[in-house]
Design a protein around this nucleic acid. Structure first.
Lengths: 180, 180
DNA sequence: GTCTATATTACGATAGAC
DNA sequence: GTCTATCGTAATATAGAC
């Protein structure tokens, strides 16, 4: 059910997908879904929460880098790979925030801010090492994440560029954009 | 009606907003709206089409720059200012693409590609002038636009940074990211 | 645990009076 | 040009049989 919901929410949007549609693709009647989720809102929240937990978990398990440049490169490649591997979850995580209840939104938003804070710390380390030059690390972090998130709007497995190609192209731009 | 629809679609999403809601905020009954639009889909399409026409029109009226660096700076500042001035239309233009009918989607997508093509041309000019170094201008264009679009996710008029501040920060990153 | 059936509410769109 | 009223449909969620 969750896999089906993820796919349908990503393709048509949370509000445009009915419990009947999800049930139809799962192969059961709509009523049966309520054995697995108390309501449609919880289904959306669980999908987004899981995604953010996996993102933060995967990044926290990443090996430490010897210096800020290496750390930023590791982040760039990690972020691209992680997001390219789960385009549907990413799409939902950024597009369906406004369909979360206020309480649920706060939970997800806090997780997102946590991720952002890690990258900001990384930029600040590079500044103190003297290898990065960016006057506002908070804004620079958001700019970089937005740039990297953009990959998912066009990247296709079967396209002209391989994922390592994409990583190289973006790392080149990321590196230069905050360079001294 | 269109102003109200723009606001409600941006806040709650096209699928989650009813004609009754729009009518309520306009101050009429739902039936009266159909004197101004044949249906809800046309209402969405017209909002998005107008936005794209205004974007392309405003950029085409922009004075020519003496060289590629000046042109890229002009684009960066134009894009940020234009988008910051109409956050609701921008939000809809990027979030409601999947709620367009297939024919309507093609129209909007073609306009979007036209905008992208102009920026790509600009990057290619800088490469031939020897002032830009980016191995894949198409991807670099998308990366830059994604980065600049990100401004709208956090910028607030009353915030810590003024719009000229934001322009300066982003222009610094854009410039360096494609520099030789 | 899934089914059928249904309660309740809301949707987009239209008809016809004024 | 807006209103009230309504058609036909579909939504979320629940109840109770099996």
């Amino acid at each position: 059910m969750r896999a089906v919901a993820l796919n349908l929410f990503a393709r048509h949007g949370y509000a445009a997908v009915s419990m009947r549609q999800i049930a139809g693709e799962v192969g059961v009647q709509a009523g049966a879904l309520y054995n697995y989720t108390p309501d449609k809102q919880s289904l959306l929240f669980d999908l987004m929460k899981d995604h953010m937990d996996q993102l933060l978990g995967a990044w926290s398990e990443h090996p430490a880098a010897p210096n800020a440049v290496a750390a930023l490169e590791a982040f760039t490649r990690f972020h691209i790979r992680f997001h390219a591997a789960r385009p549907e979850a990413v799409f939902i995580a950024y597009m369906e925030l406004r369909n979360l209840s206020p309480e649920n939104f706060l939970v997800i938003e806090k997780l997102r801010q946590g991720y952002e804070a890690e990258i900001e710390t990384l930029l600040r380390q590079g500044i103190s090492e003297g290898v990065f030059d960016t006057p506002d690390p908070k804004i620079a972090t958001r700019a970089l994440i937005a740039m990297l998130n953009g990959v998912n709007t066009w990247f296709r497995e079967e396209g002209r560029l391989s994922l390592p190609d994409v990583e190289d192209l973006y790392w080149s731009m990321v590196r230069k954009s905050v360079a001294v």
